[in-house]
Design a binder for these strands. Sequence first.
DNA 1: TACGTAACGTA
DNA 2: CGTACGTTACGTAA
Length: 922
Amino acid sequence: MTETTTSPDRPTLLLIDGHSMAFRAFFALPVEKFSTTTGQHTNAVYGFTSMLINLLKQERPTHIAVAFDLDKPTFRDSQYDAYKAGRNATPNEFKGQVELITRVLTAMNIRTVTAAGFEADDVIATLATQGEDANFDVLVVTGDRDAFQLVDDAVTVLYPRKGVTDLPRMDAAAVEEKYFVPPNRYPDLAALVGETADNLPGVPGVGPKTAAKWITQYDGLDGVLAHAPEIKGKVGDSLRAHLDDVRRNRQLNRLVTDVELPVGLDHLGISAPDREAVDELFDALEIRTLQPRLFELFGEQEEPPAADEIVAPDPTTPSTAAELTAWFAAAPGQVALVPLVDGGDCTTLVLVAEPAGADAAGAAEAEPAADGGDTGQAAEAVAARVDLTALDADAEAVLAGWLGDRDAPKVVHDLKTVYKLLRGGRGLVLDGAVDDPSLSGYLLQPDRRSYELADLAQHHLRISIAGTDAAGTQTELDLTGDQEQTRVATAARNGVVLLRLSRYLTDELAARGSADLMTRLELPLAKILGDMELAGIAADTAHLTGLTDDFGAAIDAAQREAFAVIGKEINLGSPKQLQAVIFDELELPRTKKIKTGYTTDADAITDLIARTDGHPFLVALLAYRDASKLRQTVEGLVKSVADDGRIHTTYVQNIAATGRLSSMNPNLQNIPIRTDEGRRIREVFVVGDGYRTLLTADYSQIEMRIMAHLSGDEALIEAFRNGEDLHRFVGSHVFGVAPADVTPAMRSKVKAMSYGLAYGLSSFGLSKQLAIGVDEARTLMGDYFSRFGAVRDYLRGIVETARKDGYTSTIEGRRRYLPDLSSDNRQLREMAERAALNAPIQGSAADIIKKAMLGVDRAITAAGLSSRMLLQVHDELVLEVAAGEEEALTALVQEQMAGAADLTVPLEVQVGLGRSWHEAAH
DNA sequence: TACGTAACGTA
DNA sequence: CGTACGTTACGTAA
């Protein structure tokens, strides 16, 4: 399929006119179909990159460069004032995309070349000439016809016919066929015919045919000009009237072939893309579909992975109590622990120990393997493979002792998973973890998408350990049993990488002063989360099915109602069909525009209902939506009830950039509570066998309290100290009335604003949310800030500091980096500003409840209780209470949660007991 | 089948 | 034109 007309034994130089092709790409692809969630248009970037990948694949160039114009005037502008005048302004959607393209090129290790005073064409002409002199085949990709003058035996122009995918080869024959003159005479012809794109008028009445005829007849443009007086007819007159234009055109369309350039051919050799940079950029641009195409292309010539440098020790196989004891005694310093998993069961542990190097602590001086023989070389890594299925009781006791030894330092990737694997599957308790790169990597860069070992190793150590898989997926855990040797070897190799990575990350964290956050918060929390996940929460399945039926009936009723109104049946779950009905058939007013037309979201529909005086279709639609959302939630829960009759969520500790946890499979952090119907779902979560009741404990208004603490606003602090109803208190200040006279309307306005502030709410946003005028919203905010001035100062200060430092910090020193605070793109910048406002508040709240969880766990153990924590929902904990422990646990949880932070305002905790989550709520 | 989009639940 | 998440159904896709 890869047809190549260039000679295989000659090097090929690919030269691209960047701006020209980007512009073509821009018009070839629909701009509205290519944009990021932040509104950055990417159609030109996508089209250009796609074209580039195709070219790389089809032409297999050995050298490549992309030339760009500079904004500065060129010599052509000084020769002709109106050069390129009259062009339409570049569309706004195009602006900025060229910059993105240069970033793509940089990530792909492709040189971009510019030259002051010259156009991209001149740069290309110069490089083409150099390439030709050096015996290259040269391919020029441009939408500018002037490049045809470069064509000869060695140089071919790929000139886009339509879009950027159809690039016919314009060799000498093709140029001649199209323009009736050889390539070197194309500029003569263009001078006569003119070039509208450059605002170069030619001779009126003279097209390519006439021009070619003259050029051939008089042997070039000079000949034509010399014989101008004798050319007959109207065209002759026309020519004579425009001789100056023709001379000027010819002067301007001559490409310069000796521009001084900062690069030569030897800088243009092709090399593999910077995989990490490409991933990062393509992810940011949300054009992920191009990555596989690109990496597939370079997969075969990918440099041998640096993993080869990593000498993975050949694992020994200690299996008796004595052998294990000896191995653990001899293992120097930290031990990396890598599990091998078969069908969800951990069958083998691969352990790797490596001396920490010259600066290593005493542990590294430990003697070499006791029974290994060779001594002297202290820097040898050692590995062991422990088959968990083949240990006798004594050996297992030794292993269990080491695993549970909190003073035997271990490095584990994805600690929570490994902890659960060992504890849940084999009853082995893991303790003594000193690092988990998936967590330390997260604290260093909380915005990263992946903390896979391979990604972290690549990013921080520049070590490639990804398999051959183009997607870069980790495959170690999925390998089938017959590749046991490979699995073990890979695991040992990963163990070595793990130790090095951990050393690096730990140092980085320490240098930044975040070591405690890791070792005293996240790491111990991982174990607690593991226990909570293993415990799960009991589900009342009978109630679950009852709810399914109830919500199902509600869905049917709403659906029937909706169909009756419009007189036909559609899929109410399809936004597309809804749009057709609402806007086209019912001809109701249009709502906010979205990518696929007009939104049919609940806000918009509610608004429409008000404006249509309660259109019955819309009312039925909302009822349908409510009911089907609820049934959907219930069905999800039904599916996730495990064999033990409990629902086990998975908490993710390194997803939320603010430091919060997230919950998935199922998500138990978004169980409905706001409506009565929805709240019934919480009746499903009940106390399990062997326990007496559930306990819920939640912080009241923790984010506002943090805001009061961080801002030091005296008025706000006073409100909390007095223990008043916060929103009533704030309302009385803002509206200047007594607290008792604050109406519910006033209270809810103030409440919306208080919370909105922590999210960077604008007066526009507030007006929309409260359905009041922008002026009123502005006044409201003004009044608010005049009473709580320190809050305003604090919020301003956050953004300023974050812009200066590049990151925000929580009360525990958790950082979030926000490079977009200094972006030129307003939308990106303002988004980052809102994130900066929110991160310290949301993140500090996350710190506090995490600390509280450690405290509760510790206190339960200390008090010898058998109650246990089950769920965390950002500001709430759910516990399962053993008989007789209600009182003690209530006090303990109160104390630990309230004492988790020392703020200038009290932390108030509300506790409730009940047999279900619903009943326990207060 | 895989993916992005729209919608919507929580704090 | 308010932050942080996860899940689902729909509809189209290279």
